[in-house]
Design a protein around this nucleic acid. Sequence first.
DNA 1: ATGAAAGCGCTAACAC
DNA 2: GTGTTAGCGCTTTCAT
Lengths: 332, 332
Amino acid sequence: MITMKEVSDLAGVSQATVSRVINGSDRVTEKTKIRVNQAMQALGYRPNSAAQSLASSRSNAIGMVVSKLEGPFYGPMMAGVENTLRQAHKHLIIAAGHGDADLEREAIEFLVNRQVDGLLLMVERLEDAELVELNQRVPVFLINHPVTTLSHRCVSLDNELGGYRATRYLLDKGHRRIACIMGQTWKPDAHDRLQGYHRAMSEAGIAVPDDWVVNTYFELAGGYQAMETLLERQFDGTAVFAGNDEMAFGVLESAEHHGIRVPDQLSLIGFDNSLTAQYVNPKLTTLHFPMFEMAQASARMALDGIYNKAESQASQFEPTLVERNTVSQLLL
Amino acid sequence: MITMKEVSDLAGVSQATVSRVINGSDRVTEKTKIRVNQAMQALGYRPNSAAQSLASSRSNAIGMVVSKLEGPFYGPMMAGVENTLRQAHKHLIIAAGHGDADLEREAIEFLVNRQVDGLLLMVERLEDAELVELNQRVPVFLINHPVTTLSHRCVSLDNELGGYRATRYLLDKGHRRIACIMGQTWKPDAHDRLQGYHRAMSEAGIAVPDDWVVNTYFELAGGYQAMETLLERQFDGTAVFAGNDEMAFGVLESAEHHGIRVPDQLSLIGFDNSLTAQYVNPKLTTLHFPMFEMAQASARMALDGIYNKAESQASQFEPTLVERNTVSQLLL
DNA sequence: ATGAAAGCGCTAACAC
DNA sequence: GTGTTAGCGCTTTCAT
């Protein structure tokens, strides 16, 4: 391994100077800068990052814990974070929480022990208080975890607006009797999307009977089950807003079994714009969840907050409509 | 930050002893071991990993570069690697190559500069020679990149067998005139799967006319296009083996447009068992690509090779059939 | 079985 | 603008 000493010897300067040109920090003569760079080049010098970390107490690494690595979101999210971080020459260390509070905690400890300079968290199970406390030890940034005292450190999606837009779109297409099938209401996402649905409906002057709303869980089976419930309740509406795409696929499946044609007899809108949405038949109309951009934003926020100690501020993204083939225009 | 010194003082031993109990290495009296552990506990001591790395020239981190973070495979892959590594208390640092040779190289450099103890590579664009050379600098392990001098460091899938099994399944269902729609043939995956198809067909005594095989690329549009080509060529067969699920979805779409009912008029089998396969209608029969298990195996191989300097040996997984609803039994 | 001491390669005061 | 120097917190011979 080539050390700084060898570089400084070859360049005929001190180690301090080499360190300076590496960190671009101090004013170094253009001339010596060049000499040093040449020496580094010639030797194929690579700074030892462990030594850098030890001496500077900065690891140049950011830890990320995600609740589940398997989900459909994970790809765009990692991609967004990775590319932003790498452009800044920061390393990304990841750990999974598997949607369990203890495992999430353990993942965080694991990362903190590695002296990451900051933490990017996409977790579901941790309490606000815990996060706030953690933030005393190491700067914490949150993706899609809005309800917290750390809100200025959070990038999130306006789920209420999404619910509103989805419902509104259905209304604009002439639908009036619109059901809402939603996931676990303890999740802010579900809660807010439902809220948006209600706002749109009430704005349109439509009273929503209780049995138009069915809460199950954010999976295909949840959507299927909810649709069955709706059918048992003799729901006579023309459209369904599903809390996410997977649930919408479940609705599609149920409709298929009952010989209900989508979108002719029933219109359907999802949420997330997951990869699969464009592969099902008919292709699913849905709201796009801009995870890639959100991930980039969160990484940028972290970078700023950690290395430029800038005051970060909450950033909220908007879900946008993706028109495909599961919603029909109703004749008046 | 609590340092080792404080621990050793409290425990009334030397730093060396503390270091010993941390690393579980030397024979330390049970008694002192307990005292040290208590001291660590009491102080809430966390070893500084930068210092550990510097002193031991081991970073306890493994770097992973993946070609593209967005694909459907990466979830299971990251999950498999992460959980295996973490159980061994090793950190996972990731970088993306985005399917471009230069970016893949850059990602590798990035990781090597961080002194990772080893590299887990899932890349497409790098030459064998380059990989071999890299392996001189740092232990390299490959996922799904079989054709290399490093084959004992590689976990891969038996694609030939997969192609064989897919085709064989179709044959067993009574099909004889079976087309094969495949991705870029420069990719070993495509090449081998096609090979398997040919083996099964020839075993069944069926001569395959050239125009039963269409090579496009591993995407929906590629499958769609290939199916259109097949149709233009007046393909009069009863089944299609698509090189991967995405291509199969393209076939499904094309069939739909032409009013060809799957599986009644045309049977279809895919490859990968991507998440989406179970959401399309009809649900896609396909071969399962055990990425999670392969990722785990590769991580274990890396762990062994790096930290126990065990001789690793190639491990190959088999794709298995997942029966769903796109293949019909043909009457004889 | 345990301790003393010499680094690991770098950064950051502080001097000049 | 550049050099000197003292660590950063740990591992690891080498003694004892």
